[in-house]
Amino acid sequence: MPIRLYSMTYSGHGHRVQLLLSLLGLPYEKIDVDPHGGVLRTPEFLAMNPFGQVPVIVDGDTILHDSNAILVYLAKKYGGPAWLPENPEGSALVQQWFSLAAGPIAFGPCAARRLRVYGEELVPMDHAVAISLKLFPVLEAMLSERMFATGERPSLADVAAYTYIAHAPEGGLSLEAYPAVRAWLGRIEALPGFVAMPKAPGHVVARP
């Protein structure tokens, strides 16, 4: 039976999981959850994730939520050390990017996109912009020295960080000043099995 992925079309957190499933060539069934349909509040869904959020995967008897936790599970079970290094340094480098994904990326470009596209405020827009404009130069410097987030090969670090950086323009944030970041996005998009997240409808034009 294929892995079931409960997600939403425009969820960057859900797309992380879909992207890794596709990069690993794993069969899966994507179940699109209507954020306004009440599914997230049903007892059946809350039994899978008591926080009432996507993504959730069901893999046989295993039910998991939280996108980064799911990435670790999939890499450990199906992907091997190429995606999640077993050596202490490599594992720690991936964890650094998980922290970026849950911190500056979530409260920077992700928050700006959610506010501009959906009117959902994680933090005020000026805070999201300030966080993003502090983050992007750091990523630019890091990615100008390496092919992928942690070195010469893609890892879970790239999967965790990709989506909300790639869709930063939907939050009004331009990537034009960051050629190394844009080149990194292009290398991920060239990987066999890459699957894109659709652009959110009605997204705004990025500020220069």
Rank of each mutant, 00 (worst) to 15 (best):
51 F>W: 03
67 S>L: 06
57 I>N: 01
61 D>R: 05
45 F>P: 11
73 Y>Q: 05
75 A>W: 06
79 G>Y: 06
52 G>Q: 10
65 H>D: 10
43 P>I: 14
83 W>K: 05
64 L>D: 08
79 G>Q: 09
72 V>A: 11
79 G>K: 06
47 A>K: 14
63 I>A: 12
46 L>Q: 15
65 H>F: 15
68 N>P: 01
58 V>M: 00
73 Y>C: 03
47 A>L: 03
84 L>D: 04
71 L>V: 13
50 P>S: 14
69 A>Q: 03
60 G>N: 05
58 V>T: 12
56 V>L: 03
67 S>Y: 07
54 V>N: 04
84 L>A: 02
68 N>A: 04
61 D>K: 11
52 G>K: 05
56 V>M: 02
60 G>A: 04
59 D>N: 01
45 F>C: 11
74 L>E: 03
62 T>E: 09
79 G>I: 07
74 L>F: 02
51 F>S: 14
59 D>L: 01
48 M>R: 15
70 I>R: 04
71 L>W: 07
86 E>H: 06
53 Q>N: 01
64 L>R: 10
61 D>F: 00
86 E>M: 06
56 V>E: 04
68 N>Q: 14
77 K>L: 03
51 F>I: 08
56 V>H: 04
60 G>S: 03
70 I>N: 08
76 K>V: 09
46 L>G: 10
48 M>F: 03
64 L>F: 04
64 L>T: 09
44 E>R: 12
60 G>P: 04
77 K>C: 06
46 L>Y: 11
83 W>M: 07
43 P>E: 13
59 D>H: 02
70 I>F: 02
73 Y>T: 07
82 A>Q: 15
75 A>M: 07
67 S>P: 12
47 A>F: 05
49 N>R: 11
48 M>N: 09
71 L>N: 09
45 F>V: 13
53 Q>P: 00
74 L>A: 05
71 L>S: 08
58 V>K: 13
78 Y>A: 06
57 I>E: 02
53 Q>M: 13
61 D>H: 05
79 G>V: 11
84 L>H: 09
70 I>D: 03
72 V>K: 07
62 T>F: 10
75 A>E: 08
68 N>L: 15
56 V>K: 02
67 S>E: 10
84 L>S: 01
80 G>V: 13
79 G>H: 07
67 S>V: 12
87 N>Y: 06
55 P>M: 03
55 P>Y: 01
60 G>I: 07
68 N>R: 14
71 L>H: 02
45 F>R: 07
53 Q>H: 09
50 P>Q: 12
86 E>D: 15
74 L>N: 11
43 P>V: 14
78 Y>V: 08
64 L>A: 08
78 Y>S: 08
80 G>A: 05
53 Q>S: 04
81 P>W: 00
75 A>T: 14
45 F>S: 12
78 Y>T: 11
59 D>M: 03
77 K>A: 14
84 L>K: 02
51 F>A: 14
63 I>P: 00
59 D>E: 02
